[in-house]
Nucleic acid binder design. Sequence first.
DNA 1: GCGATTATTCGAATAACTCCAATATATGAG
DNA 2: CTCATATATTGGAGTTATTCGAATAATCGC
Lengths: 139, 139
Amino acid sequence: MLDLSSCPCAGVTLDRLIQPAILTVLAEGPRHGYAVAEEINRRMAFGKETPDISGIYRFLKLMEERGLVVSSWDVSHGGPARNCYEITPEGLRCLAQWIKTLERYRDGISKLLRAARSASKKAESRMKKIRLKQGHRIT
Amino acid sequence: MLDLSSCPCAGVTLDRLIQPAILTVLAEGPRHGYAVAEEINRRMAFGKETPDISGIYRFLKLMEERGLVVSSWDVSHGGPARNCYEITPEGLRCLAQWIKTLERYRDGISKLLRAARSASKKAESRMKKIRLKQGHRIT
DNA sequence: GCGATTATTCGAATAACTCCAATATATGAG
DNA sequence: CTCATATATTGGAGTTATTCGAATAATCGC
């Protein structure tokens, strides 16, 4: 039996969604990188345990370059300095577009899902017929 | 105004889904590569006009290596030779797993969508308040 | 013959993502 | 005091994924 656990069909990653997830968390309120990552791990794990934390920092940097978030250093506490991120109006516009995109994703997936289910059934009954035809010869 | 058309939030690609789309088309019946690509373009374009055709050929090759499909050359017609692909029982198992994965994707996206909508509203009313406070000073 | 259409394939470039390691500070255990 | 641990951020190297562009090839209409 073929092992399907390393096949993308196992669906361990759904990477592109990290970006709207970050925007969503920051739309709820300002947070520093580590807290964003923790929040995403806690609430939005899409089958995967831990979306790579360095990836989240990288996205935050990228999003700052693009003006979707702004950051400021916060040292008024114990522990290492925190880079606190806040969403901008541009970031909110981006999130609004993400919402439309996510709706399209969801609808596209639903459509594919229906097609896959119906095709799967069709193929299975076709294979059953072949097996019946060849019936007594095999095994 | 920032141009969001080249941002992934524009959602031009939803790449990983090409694989279950190929399996779905082949579960409906055997087809050669070009026909698979056309069918996918015709029915399953997720916002993008043409999912790269060479990518579809590449996936078909990969899927054959993995035993999900089998191919045979067909020259009984005009035009260049066609490599005809057929789904295997392994391929059907893979498609069955894809169906479960797609359900998880859809549910994950729905969850993110709800969070994004609520966070977006929250952030907007927060920004409105700030604008009211600073009201007369700006503009 | 020439261009358009159908059909497949390959190489190179780029983008995306992960893994690993480094740095830094505070806190609590021993 | 020192070591381990948790918090917090960053950078580099390597792998994989994906796209783009070009090459090849055969048939058909003009």
